[in-house]
């Protein structure tokens, strides 16, 4: 039995909130630089240059990459042989968010009530998902998710007859209708399967995969490649001002589902594709 005190969790979440907002992941930066070279549109190239410069300024000055420091999405893989001591896991994560957003000069972007809309003042509560897994370690992923890209995300319950073509059409239409809004070049997280409630989580979790590692399933790896090609044929381009690079990557996560349906969710991530993780 591995014991983890909540103080360690609070401090880790606090640090992850700050570092994820200041430092763009290296795999995202590498792709931006690579795609800058292939972008043909002059205005698209200029936009990519600004985006790269922005990330470098943020890193150097320890300041947020984007003013929308997001709702804090937290994914926890809790080993079943871990014992949390000193308090409650959910409370500890929210305390970490509170401290990270306050001490890290991050924007507080959460309202307590969707209709009465009073800001909670400390960016809590986070959007927390906990999975119990085998083992004795505790893994925490923090993903600050901006509202602009989140608002362009969609879910559909397709019939089995729609097949892979129906899924592709839905993904392409979602990206097309999002247009310049979600700050392209985007990363397209796609969940396929599961149920109405779980497919959105699949799509969001797909965004945690490293852009350097291909989909482990060859069928889906090919589908990701085809979709990326077709998305980049749309012409939306960086910042929606025209060009080749509309998306940096398509990431699919799948799950078994009912004989009646193909649930599909598209969770759009902006070019400030921020996430960091720690194992305790």
């Amino acid at each position: 039995m591995h014991e983890v005190n909540v103080k360690k969790i609070i401090d880790s979440v606090k640090q992850l909130c700050m570092s994820s907002n200041y430092y763009l992941p290296e795999d995202v930066m590498r792709l931006l630089v690579k795609d800058y070279k292939t972008e043909e549109s002059p205005i698209g190239k200029k936009c990519l240059e600004q985006i790269i410069e922005n990330a470098r300024i943020a890193e150097k000055k320890n300041m947020p990459i984007c003013q929308d420091t997001g709702i804090t999405c937290v994914f926890v893989e809790l080993g079943q042989d871990v014992r949390i001591s000193g308090g409650n896991l959910d409370d500890a994560i929210n305390e970490g968010i509170r401290q990270g957003y306050t001490e890290g000069y991050l924007r507080k972007s959460v309202v307590a009530d969707p209709l009465n809309r009073k800001n909670t003042g400390d960016n809590t509560p986070g959007s927390i998902h906990i999975d119990i897994v085998p083992g004795n370690s505790l893994k925490i992923f923090v993903m600050p998710k901006g509202g602009g890209a989140e608002n362009m995300s969609k879910i559909s319950m397709l019939p089995p007859s729609a097949g892979v073509e129906g899924v592709k059409r839905f993904v392409l239409n979602t990206v097309k209708s999002a247009g310049p809004n979600p700050c392209p070049p985007i990363i397209v997280g796609v969940g396929i399967g599961g149920t109405f409630d779980s497919v959105g989580i699949l799509a969001k979790k797909s965004l945690l995969r490293s852009l350097d590692s291909p989909n482990p399933d060859i069928y889906y790896a090919n589908l990701e490649r085809e979709l990326l090609e077709e998305i980049n044929d749309l012409g939306i381009g960086p910042q929606g001002l025209g060009g080749r690079i509309t998306a940096l990557a398509v990431l699919i996560r799948k799950h078994p589902c009912h004989i009646t349906s193909i649930p599909v969710a598209v969770n759009i991530q902006c070019h400030a594709a921020r996430h960091k993780e720690i194992v305790l």
Binding site: E53, N54, M63, Q67, H271
Partner: peptide
Amino acid sequence: FAAPGGAGAFLSK
């Protein structure tokens, strides 16, 4: 006008 989206550190200059 459009300003570059997601480039808030750059724009703050």
